[in-house]
Design a protein around this nucleic acid. Structure first.
Lengths: 165, 165
DNA sequence: CGCAATTCAGTTGTGCACAACTTAATTGTC
DNA sequence: GACAATTAAGTTGTGCACAACTGAATTGCG
């Protein structure tokens, strides 16, 4: 079912690359979606999706923030955040209001209900950790590796920014 | 803060859990999206998105397959694959035809154009590897870790399936 | 001041992920 | 052969990710 040797007459070294390639990023992708599945179950009680949960984490930690800052914490732009925040607002968890000092900016803050939800979220991390079956040290090492990888990829993307070849 | 839940050796303060939690899965998520950004640039020339590229990898490796098998390789269901395959078909890269032996099944195969595209994809892995700045050994270790994690998460998700504890 | 450049949020359009459902074909059991 | 259970693909609806764009507010510079 998995990874049978490359077909065809004498698979060249390049054939291996196309398979290795799949394994690098695909494993990452698959792990990310597997996490998504577990979070989906745990967060259903709270009425949150995983990205919404991430936004709530940021607000629980930092309090009121402009949309821009939320996006910087989460690596998301307004195209993703605007509708997401509207849904959180519709759910009564979040307030959104134009800044008086800068009318371009919108401050996002917690409602009482949103603040209260934190209590119910407190045991999510423990249950997630249990689902991974990994110890904290392994998780820490993995995180460090992934963050380095992300930084490298971001830099590579920048080097390909408009104007560069 | 809560009652200390099963503190491991040198466990962090309970208040850190909501932040640690973010770091585990968020790092994964961010890395996955960072990869997406690099792939998006590289694959633009080929006219493929990253998930479409994954499907092409599977077909280049295994040849003609039923949709079901493609989904097993990629951990995707028909709700995702059906429209994706239609787009690949519209792009002329893929053929789809009902199996004669089992009319429920649809065989997905490469067109000549789809087969030819492989040549132009050959240097994608190298360029991705360059963008990561990581050596092959590190990548291999990371992949092993991620696959273990995915397996653990899948199992945990199964244990929460209907009827189970 | 006047006004071009920049910044921020939001909108639109495309594509992926997944749950829930539909439809059609096949299989197992009698 | 009849028929319930199962299986495969597809459809629908919701939400996220991101590119490209709009529009309003602010800033910088002469």
């Amino acid at each position: 079912m998995t990874a049978t040797p490359a077909p065809g007459p004498g698979a060249p070294a390049t054939g291996d690359f196309l398979r290795l390639d799949e394994q690098i990023c695909f494993s990452l992708n698959a792990a990310s979606r597997a996490f998504g599945g577990v979070y989906r179950v745990l967060l259903k009680d709270l009425g949150l999706t995983y990205p919404q949960y991430l936004v709530m984490l940021v607000l629980w930690e930092h309090g009121e923030l402009p949309v821009k800052k939320v996006g910087e914490h989460l690596r998301l732009d307004s195209g993703t955040l605007s509708p997401l925040l509207k849904r959180l607002e519709a759910a009564g968890l979040v307030r959104r209001e134009r800044s008086a000092r800068d009318e371009r900016s919108v401050q996002v803050g917690l409602t009482e209900e949103g603040t209260a939800l934190r209590e119910r979220a407190l045991d999510v991390p423990r249950r997630i950790a249990a689902a991974t079956g990994a110890d904290l040290e392994e998780i820490r090492a993995l995180r460090a590796r992934l963050d380095r990888l992300t930084a490298a990829l971001d830099e590579a993307a920048l080097n390909r920014a408009p104007g560069c070849t």
